[in-house]
Amino acid sequence: MPKILNITGLEKTYSSGNKQLTVLQNISFSIEKGQTFSIVGPSGSGKTTLLGLCAGLDQPNSGTIELCGEDLNMLSEDERAQLRNKNVGFIFQNFQLLPTLTALENVSVPLELQGGKDATSKSLALLEKVGLADRVHHYPSQLSGGEQQRVALARAFANAPSILFADEPTGNLDEDTGEKVIQLLFELNQEAGTTLVIITHDLDLANRTQQILRLKGGQILTNERTAVL
């Protein structure tokens, strides 16, 4: 299978005052196209930092990241933004909807950034898919947590990304709502054939993906395939 993400010798340090804090060290792994992949680990193990680097939101101190065939180190910030717009989708723990836009407008943003023609009709179809056809003109503050995360799902799939990064997608939801959102996420993912990378504490959720990467203290503990096909 071709690789969509290829990471080699990744290292990331932050400076805090005079001290250097190494968050990630010697990280190498790759993700195949269409694969479901999870990154697990305790708090402070470097999961979120790794996600930020993989999606081109930040730059490593050393090592290479190849996303969708592009070496991120060779791209400028705006080129990385363009790459994200074309190929990457995001789901965040805090939903991160734009508070000043309605549900429909939020979903349309990635399409409009691409200059797509029928952004509104595509967004409406996606919102219908996530069961929010009657809430399209509501602002985020008028939606429940579960509804907000469903809008975020619709937005994440709006630009038909090749790879989708989900950071603790159920972290802010109760068990039932969380389960519904996850089911929806896997359904949409299967339908679109997107590569899915989930960061989670939840081992049950991780076990529903095809491969699990375990991090501890900024280093890879294990990188194993699960029984999921």
């Binding site: 999606a55 939101l57 933004a81 717009n85 990635p110 950034l113 630009n159």
Partner: peptide, 16 residues
């Protein structure tokens, strides 16, 4: 600022 960061995540350039 947070909304701007979200926009950038979704691929908006600095100029945009």
């Amino acid at each position: 600022l947070k909304s701007i960061a979200v926009l950038k995540c979704m691929g908006a350039s600095r100029l945009q």
